[in-house]
Write a protein that binds this DNA or RNA. Structure first.
Lengths: 198, 198
DNA sequence: AGGATTTTGTAGTGACCAATACAAAAAAAG
DNA sequence: CTTTTTTTGTATTGGTCACTACAAAATCCT
């Protein structure tokens, strides 16, 4: 109903841009992982003090959640496009693996998938759950797209596809470049080429 | 030359078995990951006090290194057997993936590969390096075995194999059981079945 | 101008972290 | 029995963690 963007708000104005700050936090979390980014790192990067941080974001885990959502929107794989219904399954999955290979190496010092790596958990259980939720949501989208073309083996193929994506993300973190990652993706999609994977 | 096992040593005797303690630490690290296991967790599980811990193991990271080596010896994949030279490549890789699927789900609450998950790093860089070293060593063993049968594409195939192993470990951590992991492994080995992966 | 509201900077909070100082205790060696 | 050596338990150490109490500052509304 009312304007969601804060305009003409009372009180002392913010000295930093919140959305921009979420972007910086996203980059930091992607580079080092949730645990390795301290609050001092964040407030330092944003050039603000802890009270401003907590007034704006609530907690470190909450900011992580916003960074995850921003990542999914801006850098995450576009499953709907890659797995569009008119595409044959083998072609769609090959395109998905190739897009992942490119996306996971797009930033040289922030490789891999923020969601996949975040879902693997560390010290903070609630932060890990936020990533796991997004990962499960991605899985569901993939499964739905596969079910249209191979309803009987949808779960089995989905398991395989998500494992390949996780393997690509891990390999990207290992230092493999886009070319080698794309080769992995091509090999992985061979399973669906000739014989329909029995 | 001299006896490596401490026998008839002077001084007050230890009240705990060091090798056994490494095993308990290995289990803890495997369940929760390096960062999530505190020194208090370790000393609590071993029923010893911090000074005994440091006298025996040097540091948390050093104990982690010993736990990694123990894991590689006792629970790690037997690459030499699985990739034995007389086996055809496709059969060897299928066996490797299947063995990984079983190994990574062998302990219900310590899933995945300790080395792979540890190499993905967290807060402690030196601990991460210890895991990365073992992971690279495994990669070299795999590459050598592949090079015997497909010298030209050894690097490419090795990239793929290590990515599959990482994907299997991640999927195991995701909660997938042995059966679903084995299905992933079977699909992954299809790439080498009919057409020699062009 | 004056009151209401919100963010700011300063300066901490207790909790937990890995790692130790120190002296008593327990064994072998002389 | 005394000395030497090693491990033990008690009690901390300094450092870092995520998070806040508090009051001054900066804006809008009346």
């Amino acid at each position: 109903m009312t304007n969601t963007k804060k305009v003409n708000s009372r009180g002392r104005p913010r000295t930093f841009d919140v959305d921009e700050a979420v972007g910086k936090a996203q980059a930091l979390f992607h580079q080092r992982g949730y645990d390795a980014v301290s609050l001092a790192d964040l407030t330092g990067a944003l050039a603000i003090n802890p009270p401003s941080f907590y007034a704006a974001f609530g907690s470190k885990a909450d900011l992580y959640g916003r960074a995850l959502e921003r990542y999914a929107k801006t850098e995450g794989l576009d499953f709907d496009r890659l797995l569009a219904p008119e595409r044959p399954l083998n072609e769609a999955l090959a395109a998905l693996f190739d897009a992942a290979a490119v996306a996971y190496t797009a930033h040289p010092e922030a490789t891999g998938c923020l969601v996949i790596e975040g879902a693997r958990g560390g010290t903070d259980a609630v932060a890990c759950d936020k990533a796991k939720t997004l990962w499960r949501r991605s899985r569901q989208v993939v499964r739905d797209a596969i079910a249209d073309r191979a309803a009987d083996r949808a779960d089995e193929i989905t398991d395989y596809v998500m494992a390949i994506l996780a393997g690509l993300s891990a390999s990207a973190r290992d230092g493999l470049g886009a070319a080698r990652l794309r080769a992995i993706g091509r090999t992985a999609s061979l399973a669906f080429m000739s014989d329909k994977a029995r």
